[in-house]
Write a protein that binds this DNA or RNA. Structure first.
Lengths: 143, 143
DNA sequence: TAAATAAAAGATAAAAATGTCTTTTATTTG
DNA sequence: CAAATAAAAGACATTTTTATCTTTTATTTA
């Protein structure tokens, strides 16, 4: 469904969101451990998300990554678009570039509703909304 | 959503299904052209589908690939399972191996219904059912 | 201002997916 | 049976994705 890169991105952003709720910042080492990902690999991903303003960071002592109030309103769809592009939301299920509403592939119409469901779900999933269940250990991000 | 390999596989199987309706067989060259894919690459994929009995073939003059009545009843879900495995249907959206109903990731429950939608859609899409619209050029497989 | 800290950036490597080319095997037909 | 045909199989190449390691830049604190 998502690339591995995107899975890491989502997990990291949810992790940072949780840590950001009380205004604190979190270092890349802690993030990598917290979501069980390669440190430098997730660092690259976060740099990209930072450039796209989905995430904030500061260098130096007491620095780290965090999400401001606006970023906490980001949805998973926003992250997916930055990392994997929007082919999941708009691309043809069979990979046909010329596929469209008026020139559909054999599964175009069936796919439309499925895709819509994915998009709606991801757009409604705001980063700030995962904290409570994580705190209560009703959900998890590593193992 | 699917790997490129799987996209080719589905396109090829729908193509062969169409040709098989009148009992004729179709060669790998014609398939590759018909779905706009690399010839030897799709050949490999069809060999695998053949080994799994989703597809029939005969060698030699007048040989080629075809689908018997049973294979025409195959669903796209069957093909996806052979080519991409069942991670699309059962895997965690965030790539967490330990994720389950009782130990869910933050998006587990939201994902369940989306995944179910995909699975239902693919299981209901039988290879034999695409022919008519293709014949009428209401849908297409290349460009 | 010097030292320490932590992200940013760059370079390289490994693994997986995708694509191409050649040889082998099975089948049919004359 | 010999030749032609077409799939099966094997070897190899390229591209993309994923992962690792090193250097640079920015910031803070003593």
């Amino acid at each position: 469904m998502f690339s591995k890169t995107c899975e890491y991105a989502i997990r990291a952003m949810i992790f940072i969101a949780q840590k950001s709720k009380d205004g604190s910042k979190v270092g890349i080492k802690e993030i990598a451990k917290g979501i069980d990902s390669p440190e430098h690999f997730i660092a690259k991903i976060l740099q990209e998300l930072g450039r796209k303003r989905l995430l904030q960071s500061v260098k130096g002592p007491n620095g780290g990554f965090y999400l401001d109030d606006e970023s906490l309103q980001c949805s998973l769809a926003d992250i997916v678009k930055v990392v994997d592009g929007d082919k999941l939301f708009t691309g043809c299920g069979l990979g046909l570039k010329q596929c469209s509403e008026t020139h559909p592939c054999p599964i175009h119409h069936e796919f439309r509703s499925v895709r819509k469901g994915i998009q709606t779900m991801l757009e409604n999933a705001k980063l700030g909304a995962f904290t409570e269940e994580l705190e209560k250990s009703l959900t998890f991000l590593k193992r």
